[in-house]
């Protein structure tokens, strides 16, 4: 009996410690975000640093984002046709593909892909710089590593992801057009015309852009924070990189639900 009570007590203690640890870490991350914002002046005064990171985070993510967008658009069109044809509404395929991508899949899938490719790379790079004492060397040289290393990577992520999400949606719509119009034979005028009539600039497109900006801030913060906070060992960097991908995915999906509730509650 005593063993059972101890086990239950330990279970509650474990939950309490995990909760406290989580809240403490969230506090650290918030303070870190403030420090990054405070140190961001030099990032914009020295655009070469930012451009270099934009290339690494944004340009090098283009292939995976564009290809994924194209294929997801093509699959959406195929799956959409299967359903729409039952109701004789195949002309609405353009609307289905565009709204799915612009409102949801564009920001969310681009965010997940960005976290996997660029976010993990940023975490690994900063973590390894910490492990090999490069960040400490900067500090000793009176150069703030948050301003020199972290802030340019953070802002590169914040700028890149919304642009990548827009390109993802664009390629997705083109993929839907290829399958729907060129492969299946839906009327091209109906595909584009219905899309133009149904997709609202503010309600659909702007909300999608806002989502991608929120995801960009979240993923970029997670990536730089995990790298900066990594235990300076090989396994510490490995664990931090994994945490970046897992935490980013969960945060993107959770934020997506919250944002969707607020943005599209009128249609519920």
């Amino acid at each position: 009996m005593n063993g059972f009570v101890t086990g239950v007590a330990n279970w509650f203690i474990g939950i309490g410690e995990a909760t406290r640890g989580g809240i403490t870490r969230l506090g650290f991350a918030t303070r870190f975000l403030l420090a990054v914002i405070r140190a961001s002046g030099s990032t914009f005064l020295r655009p070469r640093l930012l451009i270099k990171e934009l290339y690494h985070a944004g340009v090098l993510s283009l292939i995976i984002v564009l290809m994924s967008g194209l294929f997801i658009g093509m699959v959406l069109a195929l799956q959409g046709y299967e359903t729409l044809v039952r109701f004789g509404a195949t002309e609405a395929m353009g609307v289905l593909v565009a709204l799915s991508l612009v409102r949801e899949l564009g920001p969310v899938v681009a965010g997940l892909l960005f976290a996997s490719r660029a976010g993990s790379a940023i975490t690994a790079e900063i973590g390894l710089m910490k492990t090999t004492e490069q960040l400490a060397a900067m500090e000793v040289m009176a150069v703030d590593p948050v301003a020199r290393v972290v802030a340019p990577r953070f802002w590169a992520g914040v700028i890149s992801l919304p642009l990548l999400a827009a390109l993802f949606s664009t390629l997705g719509i083109y993929g839907g057009y290829l399958v729907g119009v060129k492969l299946i034979g839906i009327d091209g005028g109906a595909f584009w015309g219905q899309m133009q009539a149904a997709v609202d600039w503010r309600y659909d497109v702007l909300n999608g852009v806002i989502k991608s900006i929120v995801f960009a801030v979240a993923v970029s913060l997670i990536a730089v924070f995990e790298g900066y906070d990594a235990t300076p060992t090989a396994e510490g960097v490995s664990a931090a990189t994994t945490r970046t991908v897992v935490t980013s995915a969960l945060v993107i999906l959770a934020l997506d639900f919250v944002l969707t509730v607020f943005m599209f509650r009128g249609s519920i």
Binding site: L128, M129, T132, E133, Q134, A136, A137, E139, V140, M141, A142, V143, D144
Partner: peptide, 28 residues
């Protein structure tokens, strides 16, 4: 930071910036 600008430290494993050339490291 003013104090650190007056000192130099050689780290045990060099701590060279791996994304820069030798020239850029010293020019840093």
């Amino acid at each position: 930071y003013a104090h650190r600008r007056r000192l130099g430290m050689l780290f045990q494993f060099g701590a060279l910036f791996t994304d820069m050339t030798v020239f850029e490291n010293i020019a840093f």
